[in-house]
Amino acid sequence: MTADLTVLTVFAEQTNVNGDAENALVLTARARWAGFSAQRVDWRLGDPVPKGRPDVVVVGSATDPVLPALLDALRPAATTLRRWRDAGTRILAIGTGWELLGQTIHLDGQTLEGLALLPGRAVAGSGRVTDDLVVDSPFGRLVGFENHLRDVVLPAGSVPLGRVVYGRGNGSDDRAEGLVDDTVIATHLHGPVLAKNPALADDLLSQVLGAGYTARTAPAELVDETARAARSVIATRLGLSATDVA
């Protein structure tokens, strides 16, 4: 595609319940502030998968009742998505968006096959979790919100995004949250996770745009100061410090 950065959102009308698709806005805005051209492409439900390999794919959370329909719509595109990922496309998968791209989903007593593009089996949890989620990670202390019904079981050897300081995360005994490898970030931190935690956004953008990308622009510094204040308010309310010790 023609722009320096192309971000594809998948079925944003269905997967923006928590504002997850707006991470595309965060990525394109930050890229533009750093002097790059950037575009957001929306793949709408019912349309064929857009042509041209995007640099980043964002798949957010949908409500449970629409998950089977989204899976049906995604399945014919599985080969294309896999090819993109193998060619270097980064994937940001959030909440049920991760579940769709993962291996299996436990839904209403049945086990649905996911796209198996990412590791992770979404299994019955101990009830819906809707609360703040704080995670210590190589990107620093990540602060956000989780709202999910299922837990995620990762295969042995997977690298989680970080360790839960407050909240449930993947729901595993080792307090793992999310999943990360070179091309994938999967997490329960929903909504504007990249805006609230710009270290994650900048890591993704540096991977795609290379060393020419910088977050040291006036608009980025202003929003990042705002994000720091927002994280700090939440951490303080939870009796935590806003930065991790690592």
Partner: peptide, 21 residues
Amino acid sequence: GSKADELALQLRYRGVEVGAV
């Protein structure tokens, strides 16, 4: 408001100028 920073963050990414928080 108690969610002032989160609101300011959303507004700023939408290109809205924010005076005071």
